[in-house]
Design a protein around this nucleic acid. Sequence first.
DNA 1: ATAAAAATCCAAAACGTTTCGGATTTTGTT
DNA 2: AACAAAATCCGAAACGTTTTGGATTTTTAT
Lengths: 338, 338
Amino acid sequence: MTTIKDIAKAAGVSITTVSRALNGYSDVNEKTRQKIIEIAKQLNYSPNTLARGLVMNKSKTIGLLVSGLTRESTKDNFTFEVLAGVNQYVSEVDYDMVLFSTTSTKQREKTYTQLCRERRVDGAILQGIRVDDPYLQEVVESNIPCVLIDIPIESETVGYVTTDNVLGAKKAVQHLISLGHRHIAMINGYEFAFVSEQRLKGFQEALFEAGLPFHEHLVANGAFKEERAEQEAVRLLTQHPEITAFFCASDLMALGVMKAAKTLGKRIPEEIAIIGYDDIILASYTTPPLSTIAQNKFAMGYEAAKLLIEMLEGKAQSHIKILETELKIRESTVKNHG
Amino acid sequence: MTTIKDIAKAAGVSITTVSRALNGYSDVNEKTRQKIIEIAKQLNYSPNTLARGLVMNKSKTIGLLVSGLTRESTKDNFTFEVLAGVNQYVSEVDYDMVLFSTTSTKQREKTYTQLCRERRVDGAILQGIRVDDPYLQEVVESNIPCVLIDIPIESETVGYVTTDNVLGAKKAVQHLISLGHRHIAMINGYEFAFVSEQRLKGFQEALFEAGLPFHEHLVANGAFKEERAEQEAVRLLTQHPEITAFFCASDLMALGVMKAAKTLGKRIPEEIAIIGYDDIILASYTTPPLSTIAQNKFAMGYEAAKLLIEMLEGKAQSHIKILETELKIRESTVKNHG
DNA sequence: ATAAAAATCCAAAACGTTTCGGATTTTGTT
DNA sequence: AACAAAATCCGAAACGTTTTGGATTTTTAT
C-alpha cells in the first residue's frame, strides 16, 4: 500500500510538499505539483482516510441511525427510500454513510452518543425513532450534529426534515368530503409519533372548515400496523354503520382497512372509500389501487443529508426543511378514475 | 473528548497499561484493571476507532457495494432486504457497514479498489453487479476480500452466496406441469445475469424429466423489467395461443405478464397460470396473489456478511454458501388455494 | 536467604496524514 | 547591485491508539 512517504521519496521532495500538492495548496510550484500527481497515479496511491481523519478530527462520514430495520419491516420500505436518498446526496459530496440499526439485537448496549463518537461520524441522521425513545433525549443533550426525520426538535446542533402533515391530512380529508362523504373515520398511528398528532389535527381542520362535526369515537388507534388497523376498522364499521369513508395515517393501515371492508362484504369505493398516507409501492398494486397522500421519502433522505452536511460545514441557513405532499387519487376513493 | 492518556493520568499508570487493561490482556493486575475501567466509565471514555484502525491496519468495517440504488429501484426491494440481513449480522459481531452505491451519479470516478482502500474497509459485499460490470474484473484481481451475491466466482479472497437457481426454477416448472400444463412459456432476465442462465437450465430440466419438448421460441427475454415482460407476454400469447402457463425469472416480470393476460382478457389462473421468482412483497398483494419461488433475501445478506467476516478472520471453511428456495403456491396458479 | 520464575508495569516506536513556523530560493524594484 | 517581497519548500510535532522488548517488583522454590 503506497503512502505519501513513498511518493515523497520518488519525487525527491518532502512529505509536506506531497500533502500540500495533493490537497491543492497554492504554495507549491505547478510543475512539481504535476510531477507529484503523476507519480501518485503511477504508484496507484489512495489516501488513508483513517490517518487523515485522526489528525483532522473529522471523518467525512455520517451515520444513519434507524430503528427497526428487521426482516419484517421491509414491507414498509419507508426506511429504504430514505436511505437511498441519503446515500444519493452523500455520494454527491463525497461523504460516506454508515448504517446503525438500533433494535437489532438490543444487546449492543451502546448509547447513541457512544456509537457516534466511537465510529467517529461527523453527524447523524435519525429515522424511525419514537418520541419516547431514550435515544432522543441523548441527541438533544449531546453536541453531535444531527438531523431528525419527522420529529420537530431544533437546537444549535439539531435540525429536522419533515413534511407538512397537517396540510397533507387536510388534503386527504378534503378529497373525501368533496366526494360527498359526511361520516369519515380515521385510523391513526400510535400516540408516540409526532406525525400522528399532526395528521389528526389536519383531519379536524378539514372537518371544521367544511362545517362537519368531529366525533372522537370515529378515531381509532391502529399503531401503524396492518392487522391492528383491520381489527379497528371492523369494530368501527359494526359500531358505526354510518361511516362511508376512512382516512388512514399510513398506507399499511389502509391495507388493513381494505381487508376489513372485504371481510364485511362492503364494496370499495362504492360503499366504503379509503385513503392512505405515504404512497408505498404496494398502494398502486392493490385492488382497487389505493388513493393516498404521497410523501417523497427519497427526497426526505436527500434533504436530510444535505441539511446535515450544510450544518457540519457551517453553511446552513435554517435547520428546518419542510417538504410538500401530493394527493394521489386512485380507485379506492373514485371508481374508474383516469 | 477523553482519551486513553487522560485515563492514564487519572489512574496514575502508563497509557500502555490502560490500553492493555481495557483490551483484556492478562499482564495487568486485576485491581488496577478495575480501577481503570471505573475511571474510564466516569470520564465517559470511548475509544477512537480511527486511531485504532490506523495502527492495527484494519477498521472492523465492511463495505456493501450495490449497483443501482436509485429512486426507481425501490420497487424491487431485493437490495433492501439483503442490506437488512447484512446489517443484522454485522451488528451482532460489532462490525460496521458502510454503503457504496455505484451508479448514483457515476461522476464518482473511483474504482472499486480505490473505494475500498480509501475508506479502509476490511472487505466488501457486492450485490446487483452484472456479469459484464467492470467492477467485477477488479474484484478478482484485487486482493481485497469480498463476497459476491449471485455470482459464482471463487478464489483465495473471493467467495459467494447464492441460491440453487436450477432447482428453484425446476420446482416452479414441475409445479406447473403437475397442474396439467403442457405448453409453458418462460420470461427470462437479461443474458448478463448468472441467475438467468441457471433458471433457464432448471426450466429445461423440468421439461425434459417430464418428457416434454423444449421450444426455444417459447422463451423470451424480459430484461427483469415489468413493461418489457408485458410486451413479450403479449407477443408470445398472440403468436403461440397454445400457451397455458408462464414461468417468469422474477416477480416483477410476472406482474407484467399478469397485466398482459388481463389486457388480452385471459383469466388467471383458469386460462393462464403464472408463477414468478423472488417472492417480493407485492407478490402476495396482487389479484390474484402470485405463486412464486421464494428466496430468503434477508438470509442471503446475513450469510454473505457472515461468510465475509469469517474469511477476514481466517476461519472460513468454505467460500461458498448456497441457500434453499421455497415454492409458494398462491392463486395465480391454483384457484382458491388454501 | 537466595536464586529462579512469575507477575506487573512502562518507554518508545509505529501507523499515515496535516499543519505550524520557519528556511531557502526566486523574483521584482530601485 | 542590493534589498524587499514573493514563491516555494521542509522539519518536526501532533492526532490516539497498539505493541515490542524490556524493566521492575513480587512470589515461589530451594
